[in-house]
């Protein structure tokens, strides 16, 4: 099947100043050659720690930021070549859901207006049809008709995220980029919003790029998972393969670090030392080598390519065959 979205060698640097009065300029490579593809109806999870470039990648794909290099093929067409004006009709098909549902809703607009606006802008409904459609959207995301006249501040965090989802759905998109959509929510609410995202995906045949830092959430919702480190994808595989058999030491370390909600499995585990290095001054060779328990001399000089380790399981590690030795005992089903 033809991919809905294909990202090729996407790059973005930011210019950062430091020194007295900002006299020194540095280039920070936020996204450093990212490639992947998304099949229609699929969910790709993009996971990484703060500063890994995952949110920037999401914004580049929607052209909320302009990429320096690379291609973003949407239904086969490179949308980075389109002018701002030519982008507008495409924006209907690519929507975003944000982390903080409150700061992404206009506090002075009623919910009915918030949800009606995109319909009018894109000419999807007129007159009475707008409010009918908004009512239908409210029902889809589990809100009531009476919420139509309310303001964002009258809602709880979970309800606001439902509004954010309804607004993205309003224009009947095919691709949704969701950037940490549940990380600001309480546990019980998080479960409901994840279920809702899965329900509407099935109902409308949506394709998701799901950006998050929580590996448990990512594993639950994704078909495939891409792990990012310092602006690059270091591993990409099906959610199951990635969890069962990580082929990159960083993925293994991330999985080890997730606290397991079962006190019976408490015990010693290998903990990754140090912190994610500054993207202003990334390590030579493999960017992970200073923290890597498997690193050898080669790693500090030669960056490993993102290569197929079998069955489409991609990992960028010279010694990916070794990975697994430091894995903590994993809970089985």
């Amino acid at each position: 099947m033809e991919p809905l979205l294909e990202v090729r060698n996407l790059r973005k640097s930011f210019s950062v100043s430091s020194g007295p009065l900002g006299s020194k300029r540095h280039s920070l490579k936020a996204v450093d050659g990212v490639s992947f593809s998304l099949a229609p109806g699929e969910t790709l999870g993009l996971v990484g720690e703060s500063g890994s470039g995952k949110s920037t990648a999401g914004k580049l794909i929607l052209r909320l930021l302009d990429a320096d290099e690379g291609q973003v093929l949407f239904q086969g067409e490179d949308i980075l070549k389109r002018s701002r004006k030519e982008m507008r009709p495409l924006r209907r098909q690519m929507q975003m859901i944000f982390q903080d549902p409150y700061s992404s809703l206009n506090p002075r607009m009623r919910i009915g207006e918030i949800l009606g606006e995109p319909l009018k802008l894109h000419g999807l409904a007129k007159g009475n049809a707008v409010s009918d459609e908004v009512m239908r959207l409210l029902a889809t995301v589990g809100l009531a008709e009476e919420h139509y006249y309310r303001y964002p501040h009258e809602f709880s965090g979970g309800q606001r995220q439902r509004i954010g989802i309804a607004r993205a759905l309003a224009v009947r998109p095919s691709l949704i980029v969701a950037d940490e959509p549940v990380s600001a929510l309480d546990l019980s609410i998080q479960a409901q919003v994840i279920n809702l995202l899965q329900d509407v995906q099935k109902e409308f045949g949506l394709t998701y790029l799901f950006i998050a830092h929580d590996l448990s959430v990512i594993e639950h919702i994704s078909d495939r998972v891409a792990v990012m480190y310092l602006g690059r994808i270091v591993e990409l595989a099906s959610a199951e393969a990635l969890y069962k058999n990580p082929r990159h030491p960083y993925t293994e370390a991330l999985l080890n670090a997730v606290p397991i909600p079962d006190p019976a499995l408490r015990g010693e585990r290998y903990l990754m030392q140090g912190e994610i290095p500054s993207a202003l001054n990334p390590p030579s060779g493999c960017p992970f080598h200073p923290r890597c328990p498997y690193a050898q001399a080669l790693c500090s000089t030669t960056p490993p390519p993102l290569a197929d380790q079998g069955h489409g399981h991609l990992a960028s590690c010279h010694f990916s065959g070794d990975v697994g030795r430091h894995r903590r005992p994993v809970p089985g089903p």
Binding site: A191, H220, P261
Partner: peptide, 13 residues
Amino acid sequence: CIPRLGHKKARLE
């Protein structure tokens, strides 16, 4: 209601 690593299920409670 929490998702658990390695226990993928179709739907969260």
